[in-house]
Design a protein around this nucleic acid. Sequence first.
DNA 1: TTCGTGATGTTATCGCTGTTAACATTGTTA
DNA 2: TAACAATGTTAACAGCGATAACATCACGAA
Lengths: 205, 205
Amino acid sequence: MNETNTTRPAPYHHGDLRQEAHQQALEIVREHGDTAISLRALAKQLGVSAPALYRHFIDRESLLAELAVTGFEALRERLLAIDSSNPRQALIDIGLVYVSFAQDEPNLYRLMFGGRVLPRGVHPRLDAAGKGAFQVLEDTIARAQHVGYLKPMPLALMTAAAWSLVHGLSQLTIDGHLPVAEAEPQLAEGVLTLLLDGSRNSAQQ
Amino acid sequence: MNETNTTRPAPYHHGDLRQEAHQQALEIVREHGDTAISLRALAKQLGVSAPALYRHFIDRESLLAELAVTGFEALRERLLAIDSSNPRQALIDIGLVYVSFAQDEPNLYRLMFGGRVLPRGVHPRLDAAGKGAFQVLEDTIARAQHVGYLKPMPLALMTAAAWSLVHGLSQLTIDGHLPVAEAEPQLAEGVLTLLLDGSRNSAQQ
DNA sequence: TTCGTGATGTTATCGCTGTTAACATTGTTA
DNA sequence: TAACAATGTTAACAGCGATAACATCACGAA
């Protein structure tokens, strides 16, 4: 009746708590949203006491901030994978990928852009990650402008317009404000086309 | 030392608790956001015990839902006040008023469109109020289409585009994602113009 | 090889939260 | 006036984030 060989006596130190907590918390957010994150419940799932988590995360909010950072990094990667040879198609694809991301990961997206849980200027890494995703959009627009596809106009204006459009469309669809009945991709593409038609350089092409 | 004449013995019934709780909670949300709403603290401020509030609100969430309803009603009123004689100007004004509302009441706006706290399909009155505000936008677009200012296209497409644009712009600015440095109204108007230029009927005017 | 120190766990506890149950008081109506 | 519904009360439960004080362990220096 000695357990010395079969089951280890459950080591005092966990091994890689920080990493596992991050992963598990990410899963919970993706499935049930950030309000479902409880440090106590999370600790229990990991077989650890609640205060142990405070060795790795300042508080609940900074854990959420880290999750949002990985969300922005995932979004950025998806955006970077887009073929940018054709400026118009690149712009449309950026929008489509952006909206798809929000629809694939609505809870994560809400955490990233909720604003209420994670205000700007509090978690520098989060601000930087958000900027990193935004940068891909801006670069694509700058390129389209450079090759003369877009009207000459302040870069900030066009990026604000494009980002607002895709962000608004994302938020409204995942929150059920827009009727999802009509096939989504067509809606997104149609909406993007409207903006591009008003922004492209009519002197060429 | 009898208090019979000077101070009333604090009546058992409050008078109009429901109304006052709503008003006070609205104030708190406007100033500090919905996360700052605590039923216990709210009750204390109103000089009443916490469970008393449950006579008037099913739970915390349905109180928040009521606040969001009044938010949507306020937004709708602002939108209805717009002069709609000139279709293009009416469309631009709708957008400007919409964004102004979000900037004037960021916390209320986040409650209305947060999505995480108040999902669709749970509070029918809230869904209806949201639809009421949206309706003003849709009607304005339908009118612009009817007089031939806008291209012929599905109404749902143009409304989705317009709403997405103003909603996204609102959310991004109040959350600090867009640099507020550049004068706001110009940014909003410029962004709206891009969309309208892509949507207007180039055959006329 | 031992020893001490910092990293990383633990339990106990505080004060807060939403919510319900059981009871008290009041306004109103038959 | 008696009964009843509306609207308050106190007591209590379970859960939360967070901190303090203490325990265990890994690891580098003597």
